[in-house]
Simulated scan of single mutants.
Amino acid sequence: MKNFAPFLIFLLIVGINSCSKKDDCDNPVDCLPPLTTTGEGTIGCLIDGQVFKPGGSQWGGPTQQANYNTTLEGELYFSLIARNKDLNKSIGLSIINEEIIQGQTYILGSNQFQTNKAQYNFIDSYETNQIHVGEIGFIKFDDVNGIVSGTFWFDAVNENGEVVEIREGRFDMNYN
């Protein structure tokens, strides 16, 4: 029985630590990563009220990524991608040919004049368009240290007219 005491204490400690508030939130927003501006490598949002965070195997590429580059045609290109490979879900946001400026908010839609867009993939592909739009705002854009932080939201529609709502999006990442 004496040999069981340390084992039981260990099980009790593991059991208590596995029941954290972070895993079981009363308010789904509380399960999202905090809004930080230090390049923490976080991104998350609510998809139709359900928590979405990247995850799964790194096999086949990263589960989250931010890029800000110049294309071969000389256009500026910003993209933000998050994948949860276990759930087979992903979101992507892109801004084409606009300089990213700290404190700015950019419209995510798609029409003949605006190519900024957002996309959600799960079984079907959902995209912003002229009617179903969103926004991405940059709280921090540090070109020296490669840090990009901000918030986003968008509505996207699939080819059957079904709409998905992405809300409370936040990110704090390093970009290349």
Rank of each mutant, 00 (worst) to 15 (best):
G134V: 09
E135T: 13
L8C: 12
Y120F: 15
T151I: 15
E135L: 10
T37W: 00
E168A: 14
I81E: 10
G161E: 07
V144I: 15
I166P: 03
E135V: 09
T70H: 01
Q65V: 06
T105N: 01
V163P: 02
V148P: 04
L80N: 07
I96K: 01
T70Y: 04
F10C: 13
N111W: 06
S149M: 08
L46R: 03
L8M: 14
G161I: 06
N174G: 11
S18C: 06
F78I: 08
G60W: 06
L93W: 04
T70S: 10
Q64D: 11
P6F: 06
F7L: 15
G44V: 11
Q104A: 15
D86N: 15
N84V: 12
V51Y: 04
K2P: 00
K85A: 11
V29W: 00
F152G: 07
I101V: 15
L35V: 11
F113T: 14
D143L: 04
K21A: 11
F152Y: 14
N121P: 00
E40I: 02
I139P: 00
G39I: 10
N176Y: 10
G44Q: 05
P62N: 12
E73Y: 06
C31P: 05
Y77A: 08
P33D: 12
V133C: 01
D142M: 06
W59Q: 14
G60K: 08
